[in-house]
Amino acid sequence: MTAPACRVCGRLLRSEKWRARGIGPVCARRTGDRPPPRIPTPTPDHHVDGQDELPLIHLQPTLWSL
C-alpha cells in the first residue's frame, strides 16, 4: 500500500488496486492514466486441425508455373 489518498484530488482510495497506483478511478479516466489494454495472443488462422502442410519440392510444377 503506497498512498491512502489520490495524488490528484486527495480523495480517500478504498480499493487496494487504486491505492497501489496512487490515483483514483475517476482521476485516472480524466487524466488518461490507465494501464495498457490486454491484447490476447493471436492464434494462427492458417492452421486447420487434421490438415498437414505438404513440403514444397524444388522444381516441382505448380499452378503458377504452368
Rank of each mutant, 00 (worst) to 15 (best):
T31C: 04
G50Q: 04
L59V: 07
I57V: 12
G22Y: 02
G24A: 05
L66W: 02
R34D: 00
R38E: 11
Q51T: 15
P61D: 01
A5K: 02
V26P: 00
C27F: 05
H46A: 11
P4M: 04
I23L: 10
L66I: 12
E16L: 14
R30I: 13
L56E: 09
H47Y: 13
G24I: 05
R21I: 14
S15T: 15
P37G: 03
T41S: 13
T41H: 07
Q51S: 15
H46R: 01
R30Y: 05
A5L: 13
W64I: 13
L54N: 05
P36A: 14
P4D: 02
L56I: 11
R34N: 11
L59T: 09
L54H: 10
G22V: 06
V8Y: 05
W64P: 02
E53I: 13
H58F: 14
R34Q: 03
H47C: 07
L12T: 14
P61K: 02
A20I: 03
P4T: 06
R34V: 14
R29M: 09
A3Q: 05
C9K: 06
R11T: 15
P61C: 01
L54I: 13
A28S: 12
L59A: 13
T2I: 12
P36Y: 02
T31G: 08
Q60R: 10
D49K: 11
R38W: 15
D33T: 13
P35Q: 06
P35N: 08
C27P: 08
G22I: 07
A5D: 07
V8W: 03
Q60I: 08
P42C: 08
S65P: 00
P37S: 06
L54K: 06
P44D: 10
G24N: 07
C9Y: 04
I57F: 03
H58D: 10
T2H: 07
V26R: 12
C9D: 03
P55D: 09
Q51K: 11
K17T: 12
L66E: 12
H47P: 00
V48A: 13
A20P: 00
W64T: 14
Q60K: 09
L13G: 04
H47V: 15
Q60T: 10
W18E: 07
T2D: 12
V48N: 01
L12N: 07
R38H: 15
L13S: 00
P36D: 04
